[in-house]
Amino acid sequence: MGFKLLSKLLVYLTASIMAIASPLAFSVDSSGEYPTVSEIPVGEVRLYQIADGVWSHIATQSFDGAVYPSNGLIVRDGDELLLIDTAWGAKNTAALLAEIEKQIGLPVTRAVSTHFHDDRVGGVDVLRAAGVATYASPSTRRLAEVEGNEIPTHSLEGLSSSGDAVRFGPVELFYPGAAHSTDNLIVYVPSASVLYGGCAIYELSRTSAGNVADADLAEWPTSIERIQQHYPEAQFVIPGHGLPGGLDLLKHTTNVVKAHTNRSVVE
């Protein structure tokens, strides 16, 4: 069995187990497998329904001669939608809004960016022009300005110390501490036991640490421990890039980060 097929099978099995364990909360999309990078042309966006009122959005972007996937989250909030992270750029984010209108038909009224990198804030200006209120932590807003990236308009308070959590509509926002970046936030959907790890969490097929220019490698494993301790009931975990899975993604990420750190020390 090929690795790609095995990865998709694991996603399907995880979703099936969740649907059985929580039949009222989960209505997993039966329309197909989780979209992969090879299936999404740059400039297009796919939506994948995880649970009743919960979707991931998947886009792709060219970077350094390669094409990478990027995940975000959409959560229903009454007759409105909360968006977590842009679709990595203005063109993708405009396509995301169009796809949401086509498939869901509810307005996106608020959006949260989970850290300051372009795959999370690139497209904020498109959201703002569409009347979406954009939010991020003060740290993310400051770092985005320093980096020359787009800056969300509103500040999220109460997320300055490791372990801080605040309720934001249908989700809980959690600051686990520094990891992929010093400002990275985690998003949890309690009604569906869905954990969105953003770039602080890796997919299972990833074996290298990737972009760690703004990471705190020493603190990252401790931050992941905080996530595990705060959300032990999480059933569906979405990484910032690639295929979702279960809580095993947290341990896998820790292993990859520690291996990278150990290699760096040896070198």
Rank of each mutant, 00 (worst) to 15 (best):
D125L: 08
Y202V: 08
P23H: 05
V166L: 12
R167L: 07
P244H: 15
A130C: 15
E203A: 14
N149D: 05
G242Y: 02
V132G: 01
S38Y: 10
A129T: 05
A129W: 11
N262V: 08
S264L: 13
H252P: 02
A90R: 13
E203V: 03
F168N: 02
H117A: 00
L5V: 08
V124E: 08
E147G: 10
V266L: 14
A66T: 07
L47Q: 03
R120F: 01
L82H: 14
A94N: 10
Q235A: 11
V146E: 12
I201H: 02
A111F: 13
S161Y: 12
D164N: 14
H115C: 00
R142M: 10
E267L: 07
V37A: 08
S223D: 02
G105M: 04
V256I: 06
V108G: 02
A51M: 04
V166G: 12
I224K: 01
G43P: 05
S205T: 05
T60M: 08
L185G: 02
R206Y: 15
V67M: 04
A59H: 06
D64K: 06
D125H: 08
A98D: 10
H57G: 04
D125I: 10
H260A: 10
Y48R: 06
S30C: 10
S137E: 03
V67E: 09
G177N: 00
T109D: 11
Q103G: 13
A66I: 07
Y34Q: 13
F3N: 15
L159F: 04
P190A: 12
H180V: 00
L250I: 04
S70D: 02
R120D: 05
I74Y: 02
V124P: 03
D216E: 12
T182L: 12
V266A: 11
H260Q: 06
R167N: 13
V112W: 04
E233V: 08
G242I: 02
S7A: 09
Y68D: 07
P35H: 06
E101L: 14
W88N: 00
D119S: 00
S181L: 01
T140E: 02
A213N: 11
L96Q: 03
V108Y: 03
E99D: 15
I227V: 09
M18K: 04
A25D: 06
M18A: 04
N262K: 14
Y231F: 04
Y68Q: 06
S31C: 13
R46L: 13
H241A: 00
A218K: 05
A25K: 13
L250D: 02
V42Q: 08
V237L: 09
N262A: 08
L9M: 08
P35K: 14
D216I: 15
D248T: 15
K4W: 09
P41M: 14
K8L: 09
Y202E: 11
G2F: 12
N92M: 15
S30K: 12
R142G: 10
A259K: 05
V237H: 00
E145D: 10
E203G: 12
H260Y: 06
E225F: 14
A51C: 12
A87M: 00
V132D: 02
E157L: 15
A130V: 06
P152D: 03
S56T: 11
L10Q: 07
L204T: 09
S160R: 13
Q103I: 13
L83P: 01
F3T: 10
A19L: 11
L156A: 08
L47S: 04
S113Q: 15
A259F: 04
N71P: 01
F174L: 11
Y34A: 10
T182F: 15
T207R: 09
T109Y: 11
R263V: 06
Y196N: 01
H260E: 09
Y196K: 01
I224F: 03
V256H: 12
L217T: 05
V187W: 01
G240V: 02
Y68A: 07
P69T: 07
I100D: 01
A90M: 15
E150K: 04
S62P: 05
E267K: 09
S113Y: 03
Q61F: 05
V132T: 12
S208I: 13
D29Q: 11
T36W: 08
V45T: 06
R226M: 15
D248A: 07
E44S: 10
N92P: 14
V256G: 03
K8Q: 07
T109G: 13
E157M: 15
R142F: 11
P221E: 10
D183C: 00
V212L: 13
G131F: 13
D64I: 06
L97P: 02
V42P: 08
V212D: 08
I227M: 06
P221Y: 09
H180L: 01
S155A: 09
S56W: 06
Q61A: 07
C199P: 01
Y48A: 06
Y196H: 04
G78S: 06
V146G: 11
H117L: 00
T261V: 15
P221M: 13
A215W: 13
I201A: 12
H180K: 00
G242H: 03
Y188C: 02
L247F: 04
H230F: 15
L83S: 03
F236T: 14
L249Q: 02
D118Q: 13
P138D: 13
A130H: 14
E39T: 06
N149Q: 13
L24K: 05
A209W: 13
Q49H: 04
L247T: 10
